[in-house]
């Protein structure tokens, strides 16, 4: 039983991680806590759903495409809204994503009705048995996808010129600007990448999860805690925080009681940040 629980927790954690990493990236670069991240995941889920329904692209195989779409969408949102707010005061930066979240969730209801939808065919369906442990294939695929995304981000930030520049921004904005780094352009790219992560998360979730306008809210909230737990600004921290949360949720839900499982996640967060005020792996200014 414990094995089954731990596996379930690990898979869940990886899925949370997929949602969290984009959030972390956006925060790290431009200091915006994206409360609309859940809504972006929801939009990506719909995109994936329409692609599978009308074009016949499998949600799993369509992941890169959805990620690309969301990247473009991210650039647009950045240019139209985020970039302008970035120059404003702290509280406006905090507030704008709340507004975006309310807007997109209700736009989804307006355009596509509040009905629940589900991708009917997907290559990742079914269950595999690993010894005594049941593993749901779509969750396994999503978890692997999450690790691939983590790897890609790691590679991008460490090995590419743009990535290094982005890192430079998250360490010291003004110094980076003085060194001739084009902040606006890189911010837009980073925001696009953050949304691309949300896109990948949405596409992989869409392969097995139901879709409705409010679907992203809880994912967004948990991801937020995961990112803070891992330490704002650290994508690895976000993944580790998310996995920790997945395991706490599953094990705690079983041994303490399902009614307390979200309380346990939040309690874990509070205890950890009280002990380590910058989260597990966070650094830089708050």
């Amino acid at each position: 039983m414990i094995l089954q629980l731990a596996t379930g927790g690990l898979l869940l954690g990886c899925i949370y991680g997929l949602v969290s990493m984009g959030l972390s990236l956006i925060y790290g670069v431009m200091g915006i806590v994206n409360f609309a991240h859940g809504a972006f995941v929801m939009l990506a889920m719909y995109a994936s759903y329409w692609l599978s329904l009308f074009v016949g692209i499998d949600p799993v195989l369509g992941t890169p495409l959805v990620a690309l779409l969301m990247f473009g969408f991210g650039i647009v949102v950045y240019r139209a809204i985020i970039g302008r707010v970035l120059r404003g005061p702290f509280l406006a930066r905090l507030l704008v994503t709340f507004g975006l979240s309310i807007f997109f969730i209700n736009m989804a209801q307006f355009l596509w009705s509040p009905d629940y939808r589900m991708v009917q065919k997907s290559i990742s369906r079914g269950i595999i048995m690993l010894g005594p442990v049941f593993i749901e294939l779509p969750k396994l695929v999503a978890s692997i996808g999450s690790l691939i995304v983590a790897g890609l981000i790691y590679w991008f930030l460490r090995k590419t010129k743009t990535g290094l520049a982005i890192q430079a921004i998250s360490i010291d904005r003004s110094a980076a600007a003085l060194m001739g780094i084009n902040l606006e352009r890189l911010n837009a790219i980073a925001f696009g990448l953050g949304l691309a992560c949300a896109g990948a998360a949405g596409a992989l979730l869409a392969s097995y999860y139901y879709i409705f306008p409010d679907v992203g809210t809880m994912f967004g909230l948990v991801a937020l805690v995961a990112v803070a737990l891992g330490g704002f600004g650290s994508t690895e921290g976000a993944l580790i925080g998310a996995i920790l949360i997945g395991i706490i949720e599953t094990l705690g839900g079983f041994y303490v009681g399902p009614e307390y499982k979200y309380a346990l996640i939040f309690l874990a967060y509070v205890l950890i940040v009280i002990a380590r005020p910058k989260g597990l792996m966070g650094w830089g200014a708050d």
């Binding site: 507004g99 975006l100 807007f103 209700n106 989804a108 306008p213």
Partner: peptide, 18 residues
């Protein structure tokens, strides 16, 4: 029942922030 009321509300907040 279309959610358009909250859409306006959300858009309003975004415009205000911008």
């Amino acid at each position: 029942g279309t959610g358009i009321d909250l859409m306006i509300y959300g858009a309003f907040i975004v415009l205000m922030c911008v």
